[in-house]
Design a protein around this nucleic acid. Sequence first.
DNA 1: CCAGAAACTTTGAACGATCTAATACTGCCG
DNA 2: CGGCAGTATTAGATCGTTCAAAGTTTCTGG
Lengths: 329, 329
Amino acid sequence: MAEKVTISTVARHAQVSRQTVSNVLNAPHIVRDETRRRVEEAIAALGYRANQAARQMRTGRSRLVAVRIEPTRDGINGSVLDRFLHGLTETADAAGYRVLLYTARDDGHEIDTYDDLLGAYDLDGFVLTGTDHGDPRTAWLAERNVPFVTFGRPWDAAEAHPWVDVDGAAGTAQATQRLLDTGHRRIGFIGWPAGSGVGDDRRSGWRTVMAAAGLAGAAPHRETEDGIAHGEREMRALLAADEPPTAVVCVSDSLALGALQAVRAVAASVAVVGFDDTPVAAVVGLTSVSQPLAAAAARCFELLTGLLDGQPTDPHVLLSPTLVLRHTA
Amino acid sequence: MAEKVTISTVARHAQVSRQTVSNVLNAPHIVRDETRRRVEEAIAALGYRANQAARQMRTGRSRLVAVRIEPTRDGINGSVLDRFLHGLTETADAAGYRVLLYTARDDGHEIDTYDDLLGAYDLDGFVLTGTDHGDPRTAWLAERNVPFVTFGRPWDAAEAHPWVDVDGAAGTAQATQRLLDTGHRRIGFIGWPAGSGVGDDRRSGWRTVMAAAGLAGAAPHRETEDGIAHGEREMRALLAADEPPTAVVCVSDSLALGALQAVRAVAASVAVVGFDDTPVAAVVGLTSVSQPLAAAAARCFELLTGLLDGQPTDPHVLLSPTLVLRHTA
DNA sequence: CCAGAAACTTTGAACGATCTAATACTGCCG
DNA sequence: CGGCAGTATTAGATCGTTCAAAGTTTCTGG
């Protein structure tokens, strides 16, 4: 194996001192042109790479960002976070940062892991996903002045940290409007139990549009846990009503897929719209609201590096989703 | 913010020297019980965490493992790698290692990235996925004595590095046998073009079982690129034959889903089996061969740590997939 | 009670980078 | 031609840990 190339090797090769090489790397403008060129040639010739561990020990910066990876769930919604992760890794790579993964069973365990990661790897920052009311994680991080960005709004007004989110209400509003435009009048909603920030937000978009159209009376809704079976059950309940809806907006693709199964089982003709545009939706032909996940990841990363460099970036970003039309609506 | 806790802080607190604290952490048996207890209490009281950067600089070990994350593809097959990644992260976490992500456009770029990662972060090792014939990456790593494990066999006999793989042939054999057991005789196969290790392996399982049953003459097969549309087209071709198959085994869920669409379009009754047990298969009710991804990830990690510690672990692991029965077969 | 061995603990150097402070080199003006 | 800015470069200390070697205590047996 080749000899290890350190900053001293480069310095000797270019006939300058260590510090000059360091300057070429970190503050090129203070080095004379001719010297800089010579150093750069030596770096290229020797294939030198700055040792991150040594740099980190001195500067306290690791160029490492941590993201939690969730245990595999039903595989439908899991893909949303995975796509976000792909986007984040790509953006970070381009900026010379790396993404470190970690797992956690629950919020408490996650906080322990923060402690571990910060102590051991001197992480530059965290990207959190899936925030909810009274999230203990953001409080812990904020208290310790650890830079972090959340993908998901803080649902309590008190919290004021940088975040990126997708406007769920705008998404369901768009879906509902589309259904109105195509002639539907009785439009239902299958959502999650009240209390989850994301779920309530998405429901509000549908409700607002229906109310604005003067159709608040023709807007039945159901609440249930996520899952295909639950979606099917709630859809059957809606269909059993005196005046069943002719279209239904769902808070997730899982519920929408269940609803679709119920509709097909009774050979009814009801339009269905899902949320998240998961791969399954694409295959089944389910119309769904699509989140710009790659863009969201990129903005998250920008916000985080902004924090690190002390740049005053606009700390709140709300992105608009788009409606992907397929067969079901 | 609290004062930074170093090994010296702990040493002072426990009234011992730095080195003794270090010994408690790295070689507990050489420290007297009473002293060790005192040191451990100090560590707990102060919330000390060994600084990984400093340790790494001295030992050359970073407790970091790198895995490539692919750009999001069709979202169907992508989930396989994602599930593998989840499993790997969990296993690594449990062993005190962390997973670092990176992206790469192609094999050449990936090799550049190795260089970067090794130079900058002193990575302990790599886990590669999706090996193919004449993979340049394994050669590069082997040449430099970088520890690595592949998830996927080396398809060229010459290569001899540790690997973990799932027995694709056994999976398709199992699927084919099941179809034979349920009375099918004409069983087709839709696969990828010959030349890909994984694809050829999966096809061989089907072919072997058909030949053993004396049905080699009743085994039509087609070759095509992956994708739902391709699957549909090839299935239509099979159905158009004089004696169309009554069942078909597919090399992937994408192709199987396409095949399923073709079958339903002409209202035929043909059993379909996919491969990978993706979330879409579960939703659609597609019978599919399921890879034990979490187990595969765990074995990969074990092999890698075995390499790092110089333990002689059996370097080749072939896991058996299982057939998940649903509606389509 | 002491020598000698064994067990345990301490000290100083090193890993590879950056920071601080000191030194060498310019060019310009009186 | 000397001196003074101002810039470019160098030397030495430092981050937190582990390694190597030296030092100290404890134990055992005569």
